[in-house]
């Protein structure tokens, strides 16, 4: 499990040392025949919790909705945005989040 990390330039506070619940992206299909739509994200410690919470938060428990939850860091993304010259380790992630990469402890102070 990855430790929380700082974004570049911000100070690391002592309470961040505890693990944060991982981030999950939520996709909901509100009606049969439609596609799943991305709704947002939430923090949950495991998949069962993520699904239950997604139901509570993103569907207000409407019957018949289908919910997908995926660990945010596991989504592989390709964005047609500007290609930067320098190496961007977040290039294939959905967005930059401090917890998406676990660094070895020796360099885990960034």
């Amino acid at each position: 499990m990855s430790d929380t990390q700082k974004t570049e330039g911000s100070a690391r506070a002592p309470t961040e040392a505890r693990g944060e619940w991982p981030l999950w992206e939520v996709f909901v299909r509100s009606k049969a025949g439609l596609d799943h739509k991305h709704c947002g994200s939430l923090h949950a410690s495991d998949a069962a919790m993520a699904i239950q919470m997604a139901r509570d938060v993103y569907t207000r428990r409407q019957e018949g909705t289908s919910i997908w939850v995926v660990r945010s860091e596991q989504i592989v993304a390709s964005d047609p945005a500007e290609k930067d010259a320098y190496f961007d380790p977040m290039a294939d992630k959905v967005y930059r989040h401090p917890t998406f990469y676990a660094l070895p402890k020796s360099v885990d102070h960034m």
Binding site: T4, K6, T7, S10, T15, Y95, H97, T99
Partner: peptide, 8 residues
């Protein structure tokens, strides 16, 4: 999505 975590 802007690079900050909930805990931060």
């Amino acid at each position: 999505t802007l690079g900050v975590s909930r805990d931060q």
